[in-house]
Amino acid sequence: MTETIETDVVIIGAGPVGLFAVFELGLLDIKAHLIDILPKVGGQCAELYPEKPIYDIPGFPIVTGMGLVDNLMKQIEPFGATFHLSQMVTEVTPLGTPVAPRFRVVTDAGTTFECKSVVVAAGGGSFQPKKPPIAGIEEFEEKSVFYAVRKMEALRDRSILIVGGGDSALDWTLNLQPIARRVTLMHRRDEFRAAPHSVERMRKLVEKGEMDLRIGQVSGLRGADGRMEAALCKGNDGSVFEIACDAMLPFFGLTMKLGPVAEWGLNLHENLIPVDTEKFETSTPGIFAIGDINTYPGKLKLILSGFHEAALAAQKVHRYVYPEKKLLFQYTTSSTNLQKKLGVA
């Protein structure tokens, strides 16, 4: 039994909007824990366009995705939010009443929270491994086909086919080669994006005959009852061949899927969460949705809209977290109270 983490608010999604929510909540003395499926903060900014310039953040004529995330992390530092990365929220269960909401939030890593409000800042949903479009692949998933390695031991003494040319593919090739019966790496071309020293190590192993490298793409799977016997492959010259294996690990990067948001009992409209434009609250009192994941008349999927939504949602969250306290509107420029919280007074 893991212990339950008690906090004011759980923010689902550590993209720019989730991060800024920490700031707006923090100014109101509200403590937050953030959960994100990625191993790093920043959401799409960090995963999709870390080096790409953004031109429409107020006050920044130009800032890169990573630059914005770095600045947000600095901005929210005084509020000591706790991050739970590489975890996906699987369950959001209401425990309280509409007037005094309370929720239990559980992740796929088993982390359990109890909180007074939930802020969904999940952007385009969760980043999940891209599945190659191979007919019937679902039948083999979790038995023979794995998109991530959770336990290396489960792959001991198996004949493993690893597909891809990036760091994940190469790292797992090198990590699994010593314990597997045989490792075959397959990539669509004889050039690799992965770190050069990994590629070099891989090529050495191939030279010594301790693993195989094949150039081509997987087009089909052969086997029964989820047990793979071989991958049917196509070479770039049009040749067709088979690779005998009982496990396959495809590494084709990440894609955004709505994921379990659909299972939290919220009203959804075309995979977005409808909210009001006063508090950005969902159909469930105490659950808020801000940033790209929400929808309302006139919605624009801009980072700056998400920032505004975070500020307004925080006002209502305050009512749930401190029902007895009256909320005074204050400016960071002039309020010594706010400046103390920011550590500058």
């Binding site: 891209k130 479009p133 040319g165 990036g166 990539h187 669509r188 994006r193 793409q217 084709f252 990067g253």
Partner: peptide
């Protein structure tokens, strides 16, 4: 980036 696409 095409490495991430399928049926290239």
């Amino acid at each position: 980036m095409l490495d991430f696409a399928s049926d290239v």
